[in-house]
């Protein structure tokens, strides 16, 4: 059981939901087959703080999202494909809108990918796979994600390619001295060797929460968002301005803060549309880098 996130004791700005563009699902809770050292919600095979969503819960939320005009759907965990209903959940979602799934790429079965290929072909919408790999060598990646995970994720990439998907490789900047240009070049070379001749990459900062606090450090006291910082700031860059996340314990403001008690906004989407005060240090990372959770290749959103 993790320790709830502390709430800042200082004046903070509040962010209103401009429109619910992106609806997230914490579809495998905090359960993961890996135990990455930088995981901001400390997911592991044994972390059951949040549990799996079933297909019926997702369907109800999809229905509720229609009159709200949601634009896109995102699925995260944990490792989403540990949820045995993941394939039917995505099949359902693609009837409603575009779906993106954040996975470690290590547990795919070919029959799942065959079904998902058919589901995307039958849909108007894109099915995006985001595969987390945190170094372009096994040495760099496995130091953070665990022994053998580089080779397993690369196998996952090959499986996705074989089924006609073009995964977005999501890379956390796990070293303070990381050189983005070198990362891009290194990944391009390695992925081309896997047969991915037009690799798509997204580089992310880490969030100084959960396991990452022990691996590197937590937030410093001054790393927070003050009311003045939001003056003349494009709030569209903050995920809480246009997203919410459905979990098995209710609807939360964003996937990063699900361990914060004040981030639970209600039992339904309708209850979750209220403004949110930025009472957490992690909001500073979102402020610094823009909407790091979107599919765009850098933090900046499409505005």
């Amino acid at each position: 059981m993790s320790i709830p996130l502390p709430i800042l004791d200082a004046p903070v700005p509040s962010v209103s939901l401009a429109h619910l563009d992106d609806l997230w699902f914490q579809v495998s809770g905090t359960v993961c087959n890996l135990t990455c050292h930088h995981c901001f919600i400390s997911c592991s095979p044994h972390n059951h703080t949040f549990g799996f969503l079933d297909v019926e819960t997702v369907r109800r939320a999809l229905e509720e999202s229609v009159p709200l005009g949601v634009k896109e759907y995102y699925f995260t965990g944990g490792e989403p494909f540990l949820n045995r209903e993941m394939v039917p959940i995505l099949e359902w979602t693609l009837r409603y809108g575009p779906a993106s799934i954040l996975t470690n790429g290590t547990v795919f079965k070919d029959e799942w990918l065959e079904r998902l290929r058919r589901a995307e072909d039958a849909s108007l919408y894109s099915l995006e796979f985001r595969v987390s790999i945190d170094g372009f060598t096994a040495e760099d990646n496995d130091a953070v994600r665990g022994s053998g995970t580089f080779d397993r994720a690369m196998r996952g990439v090959r499986q996705l390619l074989a089924h006609g998907f073009l995964p977005i490789i999501t890379v956390a900047r796990t070293r303070d001295d990381a050189d983005d240009v070198a990362l891009v070049k290194g990944f391009a070379r390695v992925l081309k060797a896997q047969g991915y001749d037009r690799p798509r990459l997204k580089i992310l900062p880490t969030l100084r929460l959960g396991a990452e606090v022990d691996r590197q450090r937590g937030y410093r006291d001054e790393e927070r968002v003050s009311p003045e910082m939001l003056e003349d700031f494009d709030q569209g860059l903050l995920i809480c301005n246009h997203s919410r996340v459905v979990t098995d314990r209710g609807v939360y403001v964003c996937p990063i803060l699900i361990e914060a008690a004040d981030a639970r906004l209600g039992a339904t989407l309708a209850e979750s549309l209220t403004p949110y005060p930025l009472r957490h240090h992690a909001c500073f990372t979102c402020y610094q880098y823009g909407t790091i959770c979107s599919n765009a290749s850098s933090g900046r959103r499409d505005a």
């Binding site: 429109h19 999202s65 005009g69 634009k71 409603y96 108007l124 919408y125 894109s126 499409d302």
Partner: peptide
Amino acid sequence: PRRMNEFLWESTTSTHFLEHLAD
């Protein structure tokens, strides 16, 4: 209609989002 440089791609724009814009 809400943002000059918003990308509305066919495959990432749900129909109910477009209904919302039209409304």
